[in-house]
């Protein structure tokens, strides 16, 4: 465990050197949030109106929270990097080291995500305050619980993206699979909560990974209850285990197919 902690710390230190670049990349998130703000303002004719149990403020905070999770993970580059490592054979330099490749991916990416999270959470809160002039009513203890769920969501997302990237062992380019994954997360969980879907779809979506990677933590933030917290954490632990096992299986099967010439 100490070696992974060391990799994590090194990655945090390294990324702190590029903090300005990381901050500037928030412009893209701001633009998306601005579009959603305008869209929801148009749909909510009255700010006090409730649509599927969500007020205008709750809706905007939900979108801010899910966008922050999505951007902290920054899946496209992460997936492309793992995929490129497999395709170009760079993975050969990692597999003979005294650590697990999955553990290495997790700790390096968590290092980057930690730096992004520090910035994006603050910037996300500032944007919310700027647009809505208020925060959701949440105590410090509840905020800590939401943060725990947020960390779980990040870890599960990284493992999911690692699994997709590792599929390059079997198909040359895992990019198209990433597009599908990203649309699944963005369309079904980021833009609006599960309650906005037809009744028949809600049941399926509630048991899907969405509850673990964005819907669960975001609903905790906008409408906290300890009962929901326990349910979200249980689903996150279950998904963490399942995704880790899938990731390990893909790696174990895939690495046997690895063929690197020269170097």
């Amino acid at each position: 465990m100490r070696k992974y902690l060391f990799i994590f710390k090194s990655e945090v230190m390294s990324n702190l050197q590029y903090i300005t670049n990381i901050s500037i990349s928030f412009i893209g998130i701001f633009l998306m949030l601005y579009i959603f703000l305008n869209l929801w303002k148009f749909i909510y004719s009255d700010p006090n109106e409730l649509i599927n149990g969500y007020s205008y403020n709750q809706m905007i905070w939900y979108v801010i929270f899910t966008e922050v999770i999505w951007s902290v993970v920054g899946g496209r580059k992460m997936c492309a990097k793992i995929s490129e490592d497999v395709k170009a054979g760079n993975i050969a330099y990692n597999i003979n080291k005294p650590y697990s490749y999955i553990g290495y991916c997790l700790s390096t990416n968590l290092g980057l995500c930690a730096v992004r999270a520090m910035l994006y959470i603050v910037l996300g809160l500032l944007i919310g305050l700027l647009f809505l002039h208020s925060f959701p009513s949440i105590s410090i203890l509840e905020a800590i619980a939401v943060f725990i769920s947020f960390v779980f969501a990040i870890v599960i997302s990284i493992l999911m993206l690692t699994s997709i990237g590792l599929l390059s062992f079997f198909i040359e380019d895992s990019g198209p699979l990433y597009w599908m994954y990203s649309k699944f997360i963005l369309v079904l969980g980021t833009i609006f909560p599960i309650e906005f879907f037809p009744m028949w779809a809600r049941g399926i979506l509630k048991y899907s990974p969405l509850n673990a990677v964005n819907y669960g933590p975001a609903t905790l933030y906008v409408n906290f209850s300890w009962n929901s917290f326990i349910l979200v954490i249980i689903s996150q632990i279950v998904y963490l285990f399942i995704i880790y096992m899938i990731c390990k299986l893909i790696y174990m099967k895939g690495v046997k197919r690895l063929n690197v010439n020269g170097g």
Partner: peptide, 26 residues
Amino acid sequence: NKVTFISNVFFMILNNASFIIQWLIL
């Protein structure tokens, strides 16, 4: 690489089509 070429084109079409769900809900 024909498989990669076709899958890139096909998945992009599918990727764009997924946004229909968003608009149906809205």
